[in-house]
């Protein structure tokens, strides 16, 4: 038998993209666009002798969160590493453009929920994938400029790497769990190019200490930290919908200032415990070891808040 607590509160990390969506939204409100039966699939994978997926690893559609309409984009990290590719990218960009066009009309949504779970561009269709990332960034900025917040939810197996890291950084608000990781160049790629002395990708503790959810939220690469269950992500998505900053020149200038300050304060640090020591945390080496409740208490007692975005 599956333990009761797992049935009641499934893990975001362990869930498929479809199960994340059904746990995130109000029951039975999700309406998928270009669902699996439409068979809009990658035309490229067959050339590489690879099986396709009916949804090309991205699920897009509309639903409700606490009774208010939202648009949802979810990447399936288990299929081809949740990659940006021609078809999956077009689904993401198409939905974002539709949201921007409908903003302020009766068809408008209260937010876009972006469930990132990706290693970046799909190498088998790399040119289309790179284009998809840049078009996604452009469309995402247009959505924010139209006054609709875009909320990134990061806690999947593949993390948010490559173009996924760039897209995350463009969002209005970023929610992350301990298992979540955000970066642009992945650990294996750094090691391949610069050697294991620079970054040992097999040192899992190092990977999570640098790219993981706790470091990201402490440094401001993410805004909200949640426990790793689907219900916590749902609660954070609903909360942050109203907390997203306006997309203005002032916000951008404040964000630039925040990032410059971060670089000058910690730019020469070699590892995260050095940063936490300099930031004045009393026990800088314990950050990865304490449980989620203790970490959330640490965040709230130090009033760690990064207001720009």
């Amino acid at each position: 038998m599956i333990p009761e607590e797992i049935v009641r509160s499934p893990s975001w990390y362990e869930s498929s993209a479809r199960n994340r969506i059904s746990g995130l939204l109000d029951a039975d409100t999700f309406r998928e666009i270009l669902g699996p039966a439409e068979r809009v699939m990658s035309p490229h994978l067959e050339l590489f002798d690879l099986p396709p997926a009916f949804d090309d690893g991205v699920i897009v559609g509309r639903g409700q969160l606490d009774g208010k309409p939202v648009a949802v984009i979810a990447q399936e990290g288990q299929f081809m590493g949740g990659t940006f590719a021609e078809v999956s990218g077009a689904k993401i960009v198409g939905l974002l453009r539709a949201v921007a066009a409908a903003a302020g009309t009766p068809n408008g949504v209260s937010a876009v929920l972006l469930l990132l779970d990706t290693g970046g561009v799909r190498l088998q269709e790399a040119n289309a994938g790179e284009l998809a990332v840049s078009e996604t960034v452009r469309a995402l900025i247009d959505v924010r400029a139209a006054g609709v917040p875009v909320i990134a939810l990061v806690g999947g197996r593949a993390g948010a790497f490559g173009g996924g890291g760039i897209v995350t950084a463009c969002c209005s608000h970023v929610v992350i769990s301990e298992q979540g990781r955000i970066s642009v160049t992945g650990p294996e790629v750094i090691e391949t190019n610069k050697g294991a002395e620079e970054f040992d990708s097999r040192d899992r503790a190092l990977v999570w200490r640098v790219t993981g959810g706790r470091s990201r939220v402490l440094l401001g690469g993410a805004d909200s930290y949640v426990k790793g269950d689907v219900a916590s992500f749902r609660a954070a998505a609903a909360r942050s919908r109203n907390a997203a900053p306006p997309f203005t020149l002032e916000t951008m200038a404040a964000e630039q200032e925040r990032l410059e300050k971060r670089l000058s304060s910690y730019g020469d640090c070699r590892d995260t415990p050095e940063i936490w020591a300099r930031a004045g945390l009393s026990d800088p080496t314990s950050v990865p070891d304490i449980d989620d409740d203790a970490f959330l208490a640490l965040l709230s007692e130090r009033e760690i808040k990064h207001d720009a975005r």
Partner: peptide, 10 residues
């Protein structure tokens, strides 16, 4: 899901 050692069924 079309993951390694897995399959999708429509």
């Amino acid at each position: 899901v079309v993951a390694s050692g897995n399959l999708e069924v429509l």
